[in-house]
Amino acid sequence: MGNTVLDVKNLLTQYYTNGGVIKAVDDVSFSIPKGQTVCLVGESGCGKSAVAMSIMGLIDGGSGGIKNGEILFEGKDLLKLKKHELRQLRGNDISMIFQEPMTSLNPVLTIGGQIMEPLMEHELISKKEAKKRALELIELVGIGRAEEIFNSYPHQLSGGMLQRIMIAIALACSPNLLIADEPTTALDVTIQAQILDLLRSLKEQRDMSMLLITHDLGVVAEVADYVIVMYAGKVIEEGPVVELFKNPKHPYTKGLLKAKPVINQRQEELYTIAGQVPNLATLTPSCYFSERCEQCMAICKEQMPKINDLDNGQRVACWLYEEVTTV
């Protein structure tokens, strides 16, 4: 257990909306071992970004809040830290890359200024030293012409370059945990691959842990060590990446994997999971996926399955396997 960087226990995050209270993250637990990449997968609105926001403490108090659970980072509960203690952790030991690089940088400040900020804030180094480090970071994330980039403004760079800059900012203080919230969604496919390669190699160089949030299974296959599949705020299946891809258990995970185009295989039409994500405000005690499940049984409509360990290290929350284990 000493090797665990982040340990999330029974996290419950709610949002208040006009339709009522929504459980965006409902009793989610997972941990990230040192040097490993954990992927959170799920479709839009399943609560994967809310997990990241909860860890970073970015849930706006007016619109939601963390109602239960613990988020242990290197043994310290982030939810119990004082504001200034949390500030010292963020950007320093934990940092985050956002989905949209174009809007995540301040348009009126230079790139260099923004890379220097966390350095000067957390490492208390001089401006000159910070500039030197910033230039090194720009080189590190694979952009040449560091001096020129340093002095330019966000609107002068492309999306892929900006995401590299975001990575540079996130890595500035050598964090132990990097949270990447759909870091490649806003980028085109060729750039996606480059960014993922970059993240993977930097992670290995620095022995950093990473929580990668994505809806793209291709990304998962490429970088993850361990995968967590979320649906409607719940974890429905998790396991080491190879096992999960080879042998998906939950009908939802199976559906997701079936919905992926396979190269060199002619398909008339891609498989789709029928129906839509249920309205989170009007959930009833049932398996939340039951409406869309092809193997739905009577019990699925009445009771929520618990998450159970399987023999090969996978965990799944589905009645199909509940019976097997109990009988």
């Binding site: 949390l86 500030r87 950007g91 900020e117 966390p118 804030e121 900012i169």
Partner: peptide, 9 residues
Amino acid sequence: QATEALGLR
């Protein structure tokens, strides 16, 4: 939000 995540004062 990014400045918050960076822990700026």
